[in-house]
Write a protein that binds this DNA or RNA. Sequence first.
DNA 1: TTGTACGCGTTATCAG
DNA 2: CTGATAACGCGTACAA
Lengths: 367, 367
Amino acid sequence: MRIRSDGGSQRITINDVARLSGVSPATVTRALQGHPRVRAETRREVERAAQLLGYRPHVLARALATGTTTTVGLLIPDVGDPYWTEIAAGIEEHLSGAGFSVLFGSTHSKPENERRLLEIFLGNRVAGIVVGGIAGDLAALPRPHPPIVLVSADEALDVDLAQVLEQLPEELRARETSLGADRATFEVASDDVKSARSAVEYLVGLGHERLAFVGARRTRSSLLRSVGFLRAVHDTGVEGNVVASEPTLESAAAVARALLEPAMRPSALVAYDDVVAIGAIRAAHALGLHVPGDVSVMGFDDIAFAAFVEPPLTTIQQPKHEMGRLAARLVLESARADVVRHRHLLPGTLVVRESTGPAPAGRARGR
Amino acid sequence: MRIRSDGGSQRITINDVARLSGVSPATVTRALQGHPRVRAETRREVERAAQLLGYRPHVLARALATGTTTTVGLLIPDVGDPYWTEIAAGIEEHLSGAGFSVLFGSTHSKPENERRLLEIFLGNRVAGIVVGGIAGDLAALPRPHPPIVLVSADEALDVDLAQVLEQLPEELRARETSLGADRATFEVASDDVKSARSAVEYLVGLGHERLAFVGARRTRSSLLRSVGFLRAVHDTGVEGNVVASEPTLESAAAVARALLEPAMRPSALVAYDDVVAIGAIRAAHALGLHVPGDVSVMGFDDIAFAAFVEPPLTTIQQPKHEMGRLAARLVLESARADVVRHRHLLPGTLVVRESTGPAPAGRARGR
DNA sequence: TTGTACGCGTTATCAG
DNA sequence: CTGATAACGCGTACAA
């Protein structure tokens, strides 16, 4: 006799319940699913038997029979990044609340991982998929596929940063629609252009006249934020330039250090995100500069720790949890009915803390 | 004609492939699974057909047929907590690398959620389960169940903190074995007692003679850390007391504020974890105290942000990623063979940064 | 080496 | 209101 060391749980099936309660399997199904046409007494009897036996329906068998799953695939780039985990939290919460399970994977921002995991999700016949970050060649997916909702799709653009920055924002906006996003049913993102604009307007309101945006990369949200920054800078008539940086504390610190040399030092820095902002603040401190006394620094996103660094970070909060909820709602809804593709742009909101302040006196407008 | 708006992907099955390649479904299975006894040519033919049709095996149907899944359930208390997400990252990485999928859920530290999600996992016939945090009444699970690995099980103890603290550490250690943990195959945790001890020894080595542990709660790791603290304090002959605090920044700040009143101010604080430590530092700053000039503060875990607060936090690093990997390895291994239950205690390692320093001169040993 | 037939646990259809 | 019976897609003895 060979011991089945399989991980399977109990093997009490619907048949066991049927036998014990003296009805057919079909009736058991109906009774347990709240089907209207079952005698009340029968139902009680079945429920009692099921309870007694500790019957637990085999989700997979059910899926096979119905052709439908209650599982949704979730892909995010990085489990360690608070931005993504907060979004994931919103997604998980909503999905779980709606009785759906979450099949999870991390892409590490690698398209090949994204592809591989999507394959797995499809193999598992998920009812829908939420993809955070990249979202490469969705077009290559077999059709039809379950509804896919993109969150802050960050697909790399095939253009030079410099080129894009010269182009009109309108033109860039147009380009967006040609991204891989077009195979997805929905997309939810933050309104990066507008967010960057409010950042600039806030700083200008404080009297700053020489700004810098640090952290531009070849990703969509980064480009859009820098574009919003440049546009606002232009509209308000102050100085402002964009410098590139990786979205890591180290890179940001290095870039900021160079930027803060006395020569043409900006009086305020707008960072690509909170992580970059924190890196910039460290660089400022290392240079003996006071924040916000000597230089104001602000970020984007409002990750949990933004409020607890020294000084607490002024930032443009993104409704991460809300974005997650929305994404989850959208997959579930579009899993049920045919819907029109649509992009949801959520607004950011300014959160003023202590890393920003009035422009230093006497340093206004160069020379 | 009704449109099937199910989320199902393509419906090309093994039969389609069989028909196209002119063989039987059975042969298709064998060919695609690398079964040795298939003619090379046949295999090529089948593979070509599968490729052409874009055939993707139905994972659920396969699971039903084989009685085995390649899915592992993962439960953590809080998706927003960096401690847990770092562990989760390690788990996901290993599992994914081994070709397993992750069915994910968040318990929010609520036993009822844990129960509900475990039910779902069982219903999905997962090959194994990793549970972070609580782990309530695992005993209530139907037997046999798939292997369960507990990570930093944080089950609430049915005892008063005060009582426990009076007891001998040995006695408390004995209690551990009676926790819900005993239905699990494995458990991985950090060696909290020893970690706390090294924290104390490090501070004493710096000349501190009046310490305080802030953050004890009725959870295991908190109790064990406070016990390790008290034991070490006793062994090294310095003063040291334990004060309770919720593991939130706000609570920690409030507690620390009271603790830092001039009267009997400790020269060093050992916080339950990094979050509590950061809260304590804020309180110190609010009181106009310098860290570490006036008071040293250290934490546990070494979450990502520990290095980026002001001042960078000295802490006892827990090998979170490693713990995750180990947990994942253990589920997979025990899913294959029968194994002996075991508890894995991983050591913490001291990471010295800038929130700790020598004891303030002239404040040594009260009165 | 390959094909046939059956079972995995559940639901749906169609009689009764 | 309830019971047979046929799928769902795949793996696997068993037979050829």
